[in-house]
Computed example of a mutant assay.
Amino acid sequence: MSHLILHHYPSSPFSEKIRAVLGYKQLAWKSVIIPSVMPKPDVVALTGGYRKTPILQVGSDIYCDSALICDVLEHEQPEPMLYPPHIKGVARVFAQWADSTLFWAAMAYNLQPKGAALLFAKLPAEAAQVFAADRRAMSGGMRRDRPEDATAAYRSYLRRIAHMVEEHDFLFGAAPCLADFAAYHPLWFTRQCVPLMSDIFTATPAVLEWMDRMADMGHGRMEPFTAHSAIAVAAGSDPLPLVGDVFQDEHGIPLGSQVTVAAESFGTEPTEGELIAATRTRYSLRRTDPRAGTVHVHFPRIGYVLRACL
């Protein structure tokens, strides 16, 4: 596989999930720091519209969503495993809960006024307004928990995680799995990005000990890289060949159709391209950009909507 290029920014929780996986697997990777808010012209040159963070680039293949990125990294380096066979199903189900229900409770708690004030304390006064407007645009009609409701839920979830890591070092045993990385990143944001809010961990010291074990794995072998260089890599590469059964039809949309793929809820900006694969687990689109050339953009099926262009 070509060099792994991660497009991310330091305070992105889902980026920390992937950085931690890279550390666990001790992988070498190139780091492209991207804006936290729109516009993101270099990201969109690669994705065609998708703007959430992070994205993983391998040559001219672009992988969207941290769930799919974890699958790609597991294929790149199978050991140590994210999906041990005896807990593969439960790890995926737990991770899906952590990336949604736990994440949104944690962020509603983290970004209540005193947390948000701390996050933007060292930035220009308008930075908080720009960030809030950007996230409102991404949220659309999503229902958000009130801070008091989110706080109660977050405390309950932390107690449940504590019960798991009091029994052994990680959520499901002596070694971490996908579930650990999915649960870790929203808690990491509380502790590292809005530390004023981290008193919520006082009642669950076992959670802090588990988080220390996660942090000790580091972020792998990172090398700074520029967005210009990443786009040049895409333009100078051919996408990887598609292998195996590339079409499982659930929509009546044949391969070769012009389609859009978009997230179901948060960050619903669509990517348009030619449908070249709809496997059991992912969609793949071929698209051409004036700067990046021909790229294949990949999305997980779960959490994404495929539509034919009219």
Rank of each mutant, 00 (worst) to 15 (best):
A121N: 03
E264M: 05
L242K: 01
I33P: 02
T271S: 15
H163R: 14
A175C: 13
V165L: 07
G252H: 07
R307H: 13
H228G: 15
D199N: 14
L118I: 10
Y50N: 11
P124W: 05
A179D: 02
D180R: 00
H86Y: 11
F201H: 07
P239S: 01
E148P: 02
A232N: 12
R286V: 08
W188E: 02
F170W: 08
G244H: 03
Y184D: 08
R307W: 09
I33V: 14
T53L: 04
K114Y: 06
P270M: 03
P176R: 05
D65V: 06
K25Y: 10
G218F: 08
E16R: 12
G256P: 01
M1T: 12
F266T: 00
A183T: 07
G220T: 01
V259A: 09
I200G: 04
G173N: 01
C193T: 04
G140P: 02
P85A: 11
S237D: 06
C193E: 14
D149Y: 01
Y184I: 07
S60N: 07
D245L: 13
H7S: 09
C177F: 05
A235E: 07
G256N: 04
R136C: 14
L306W: 04
A133F: 01
G140E: 00
F181S: 03
S198N: 12
V246I: 15
D134T: 07
G59L: 04
S237W: 03
L111T: 03
Q96L: 13
H296R: 15
L82S: 06
C70R: 00
L171Y: 08
